[in-house]
Design a protein around this nucleic acid. Sequence first.
RNA 1: GCCUGGGUGGUGGAACUGGUAGACACCCGAGACUUAAAAUCUCGUAAUCUUCGGAUUGUGCGGGUUCAAUUCCCGCCCCAGGUACCA
Length: 833
Amino acid sequence: MALGKYDPEAVERKWQQTWQDSGCFEVEVDSAKPKYYVLEMFPYPSGKIHMGHVRNYSIGDVVARFKSMQGFNVLHPMGWDAFGLPAENAAIKNSTHPATWTYQNIAEMREQLQRLGYSYDWRREIASCRPEYYKWEQKFFLKFLEKGLAYRKDSPQNWCPSCNTVLANEQVEEGLCWRCDSEVEQKDMEQWFLRITDYADELLADLESLEGGWPERVLNMQRNWIGRSYGAELTFKVKDMDQTVSVFTTRPDTLFGATFMSVAAEHPLVETLTADAPNKAEIDAFVANIRNMDRIKRGADDLEKEGIFTGKYCVNPVTGADMPIYIANFVLMGYGTGAVMAVPAHDQRDFEFARKYGLPLKTVINPAELDATGEVLAEADLQAAYTDPGILVNSGDFSGMDNESAKKAIVEHLDSSGLGTMAVNYRLRDWNVSRQRFWGAPIPVIYCPDCGVVPVPEDQLPVLLPENAQVRSDGKSPLPAMEEFVNCTCPACGAAARRETDTFDTFFESSWYYMRYCDPRNESEPFSQEATGYWMNVDQYIGGIEHAILHLLYSRFFTKALRDTGFIKADEPFANLLTQGMVLKDGGKMSKSKGNVVDPNSMISRYGADATRLFILFASPPVKELEWSDQGIEGAFRFLSRLWRLVEELEDRLEAVRPTSFNDPQTDAARQLRFKEHDTVRRVTRDIENEFQFNTAIAAVMELVNEMYALKDELADDAPKALSSAIATAVTLLSPVAPHLCEELWAAMGHAESLARQSWPTFAEDALVKDEVTLVVQVNGKVRGKFEAPNDAPKDDVEKIALGLENVAKFIEGKTVRKVIVIPNKLVNIVAN
RNA sequence: GCCUGGGUGGUGGAACUGGUAGACACCCGAGACUUAAAAUCUCGUAAUCUUCGGAUUGUGCGGGUUCAAUUCCCGCCCCAGGUACCA
């Protein structure tokens, strides 16, 4: 077989067909083999793949092919995160059904991914918008409902006026909708929630088990998001009223210094407290003003602290002092209890508030150094709150205690009277999963006028999304107006009832798709225990950092919830996580508005899939950002052509040998090439295993190819065997990155079996032993010369040669040699002065 | 403010447990081949100086440890991401 000119398109199409015909990447449960599950985040079928996808999937493909060659049974699936708003928008624009647009996009994107030669088991492909898929999450929801993990609640929600739907807390970014950047409003609505907060502790604790496998910053982002703080819940009696106010505080040790109380404008007690206030109108206006303020303004750093006195007092349980109750604009209903005990001497916000409204300050924590002198921090002198640790003062029996011990002691004291307990508070809120959208999975419940909320019986699943729906031009979901969908009979009593018209948040689908991949065609259950027992967890998950909180937190929660409802045995879904960096152009993110988008298709048709993959993996390590370079991909293409030409030139003399099979060099050149060949195996293997350093792995193969070019004419009789072995090694090592070209060259050497089925090469230690090594000579730490010496030459010999070097002698002349440090086979440092 | 990363040539990036800083590639320059161009091949390419042997400086800044520091320690500056009136 003659190779001829390198034509990427022809080579790539040929091997893609071959792999498909032979079922090369199709895998089954095989308990005799160790498994490896590599997964890339499944794409939203927007219509076209972009460079970010190419990077994500190329990284995953190298891992999959590498692990497979190492002997693992590799699960490497692909599918589509197919529900979502863009399909509805496109449907409005083209007046079609969102499904039409979605399935068309899937077909196009599948073809593009196939053109890139990724080693997916396409039989396992899933699309989350198919009833065979969402049927199971409807079932999960019913189980959650049964377990009390799902509940319905009426409360203020984040509302995006542009998307016409509510958003989860995680989907609001700086007060804006995560998807469309519209300002998010607050709206009272009845919605379905999942009790993710029940798992707050476990979600936090298990992050420890991911240490090492997940990037530290993602673990930290999740920790911050869950936001656990330790403190106490204290109860204050309202004076002259049969009411109490509870607060959460991390500083119960400062209770003796609490001089007033601040509550949020939304606090349920506000109305009761102010009912008989003489300035009721003024208070109402103040409250309304805060409530109507948008999130951004209200959350601004420089927002002036403002408040208004309710006219009521509560009683400090330890001092008995009256504490005026204020409504304050900086107190948030969404955190803690929506009420704060104000300790102006030891909290900066309370300090500012107290100064503004002339409220009393009382020092109760004294800096230890000051305390030693017998003095106490003077309230009048305070320029800011004292928030550091110290010794309690003015605190009755607790005075003299250090403030850490006092936290516990004071809460225990209150506990006896039922006014305080230790408490843990989380920033995490329950997950609102209701969306007022059409293109999503219907929430399987029915509202009966007599029975209330009734779950759809399991045998009536799936609740199908109607195929005949007409999307509305105003963007609202058509479901509430579709009588044939809405009207139904109550499964409990048979009366006429209404079906829920909200659909699930699309993060519902992406929270469990990796489990479905394990058993994607199962019609009797979401997945079998056998399949998930073998394949789960995902060994390596790869995707963008933008999912660090949302998707990854929801998936972790889902795994635990499905474990507790008996579906799966795993505690965590993803053992290892790689977050790849963004693909940039001219220093900025590629975007249509900037007009700097590089279309993968044009690159593939021009340079081929192999060159595109090679460049994107070579230009930068996976976790870093990648600057796209048009010259760079040309360089990648040039290297592949160079390798191709080398094999073409030698084709007649090559033998179908295994990598690193050449082991009896006769010439120095052959010894040198053999060293390089084995060293390359060592480096490439190490670089891929350590942090997926594909860039340096590729560089190592480039060096090997350069070495072959440099030595090929000096190999004499060793040439055929030495070169055959080195080329076999080069194409094998490079095959995960540029699989098509490598298969072609492998075949050209005379191999009948696919390279994809070969085992990963190993290196021989003896090949890495050099007869001669270069030693560097330093004088006082500066390089002054170098020389060749036999491997493991005796220290004394090495020292003698080093001291005798001309340039070295120059630098030690007139000085006394104090010490000579010899690092074997590396370096000699002469210390002289 | 707090948390997490990160600052190395003209550019992307290397440097295994402290041991020749700049691998590999891009760009650029010179030469070979060619009628010519492209492609390809060879060589050069941190800065400054140079008697062309080499010398000096150099991994954000300032200190320190060490025979030896991009690597370890202390203090600062800058950049990116996350997060926050969180009580």
